[in-house]
Amino acid sequence: MIEYPILEKDATIGITAPSSGVDVELHDLVKQACRRMESNGFRIQCGETVWTQDKAKSAPAKKRAIEINGMLQDESIELIIPPWGGELLIEILEEIDFEKIKPKWILGYSDLSVLLLAITLKTGMATAHGTNLIDLRGEYSDDTTAMWKSVLSTKSGDSILQNSSANYQKEWQHDNPTPCIFHLTEQTDWKTVTNKNEKIQGRLLGGCIDAIRHLIGTPFGDVKAFSKQFIDDEPVIWYFENCELPTTDLRRSIVQMKLTGWFENCSGIMFGRSAANQPVGNYMIEDVYQELADELRVPIIYDIDCGHVPPQLTFINGAYADVEVKDGTGTVLQSFK
C-alpha cells in the first residue's frame, strides 16, 4: 500500500538544499518566498544549506544529508521544499536513513526528483513532483501551479482532478518577474503519438530523466521490488521531463530503462514540454516518441505540463491516475488509494 502524507493549513515547512543552494546575490528570492509562505499561514524552518553554494552543490554531501535527514525524521515538519534543483543530489542517497523517515510531503522537481523517486520506491511513501520554493514567491500563483496545495491536502482515499494549463512560458525572464513569476504567453497543446485522443490508467512514477536515469541498477531504483511490495504489480504510468538531453542521449536513457525492466507492466508514458530535445542529424524528438510507442505498444503523450517549461501539474509518485487527452487538452485525476 502507498502511504499518503497530508498537508494541514498551519503546517511547518522545512526548507533545505539537498542539491544546489542559493548564491548570496539571490538570497532575497528565498526570503521573498518564505515571507509569501508565512503570509499563507505556514511556519518556516530554514536550514543552513539553503544559503550556501560552492562546487556545484550547496554543501558537502555529509552536511546536506545530515540536514535533510533531520527534517525527514522531524515529526513536526509536514512538508519539505528545496529552493530549487541542481546537479548532485545523488551524492547524498547512501546517507539517507530511509527507515526513519516520518510521513511528510517532499515537493520539488529537477534534480530533486532523484530523491522523490528513491523515497517512493524504497519506502512506499508518496512524494510530490511539482513546483519549487523560488517559484512560489509571487503575489499569486497561476491556476496550474496553485494546485500544489490542494493536491497535498488531499486525504488518503480521496481523489483530486487537475487540468492542463491554458498557456505556458516559452522562455525565462528572470529580470522581469510578473506577479505570478511566469510569463504564460504560449497556448498549451498536449499531444499524442497517434494524433488521437488517449486515456491511460496506472500508478504514477517519474521525474527529470536527466537525473533519475542514474538510479538504474542501484538499490534506489528497484522498480520491480516496489511494484511487488507496494502496488501489487498494478500498471505504471511513467512521466518524464527532459532538462538538457539531445534526442540521442534521451533515446539511450529510455532504452536503458527498458532493458532494466522499468517499463514492464507500463500502461503509458508522458513527456513534459522541453527546451532541450535538440535533434542530432535528422533524428527528431518525434522520432524518439514514435519508436517508443512502436516498441512498448502503449500510448505516448507529450508536451504535458511537467518540468522546466512552466507551469506544471503536481504529480504524486505512487498515486493511481486516470489521464485523458482530448483535442489538445488534458486531465489528470489522481486517487490516493
Results as ranks from 00 to 15, higher is better:
253 S>C: 12
332 V>H: 00
35 R>K: 07
269 I>V: 09
148 W>H: 12
7 L>F: 12
106 I>D: 08
108 G>R: 02
118 A>I: 02
165 S>N: 02
167 N>T: 14
227 S>P: 01
220 F>S: 15
238 W>R: 03
267 S>A: 00
199 K>D: 14
114 V>Y: 06
101 I>T: 01
113 S>T: 15
130 G>F: 07
38 E>A: 09
337 K>L: 07
35 R>G: 01
310 P>I: 03
175 D>T: 12
230 F>D: 05
23 D>Y: 06
14 G>H: 14
335 S>Q: 06
88 L>D: 12
220 F>C: 05
70 G>I: 04
45 Q>M: 14
67 E>T: 00
240 F>R: 07
65 A>T: 00
243 C>T: 15
101 I>W: 07
257 M>L: 07
186 E>F: 03
217 G>E: 00
254 I>S: 06
192 T>M: 08
31 K>W: 03
201 Q>T: 14
66 I>Y: 01
328 G>I: 05
235 P>I: 02
242 N>E: 04
328 G>S: 01
240 F>C: 05
210 D>E: 14
73 Q>H: 03
139 E>F: 08
183 H>D: 13
28 D>Y: 15
195 N>H: 10
34 C>N: 06
204 L>Q: 11
128 A>E: 13
300 I>G: 01
123 T>C: 07
276 A>G: 04
268 G>S: 09
99 E>S: 15
97 D>P: 01
264 E>T: 11
150 S>F: 00
109 Y>R: 02
80 I>C: 03
93 L>V: 11
72 L>G: 03
135 D>H: 14
242 N>C: 11
24 V>A: 12
27 H>A: 04
165 S>F: 06
32 Q>K: 10
21 G>F: 04
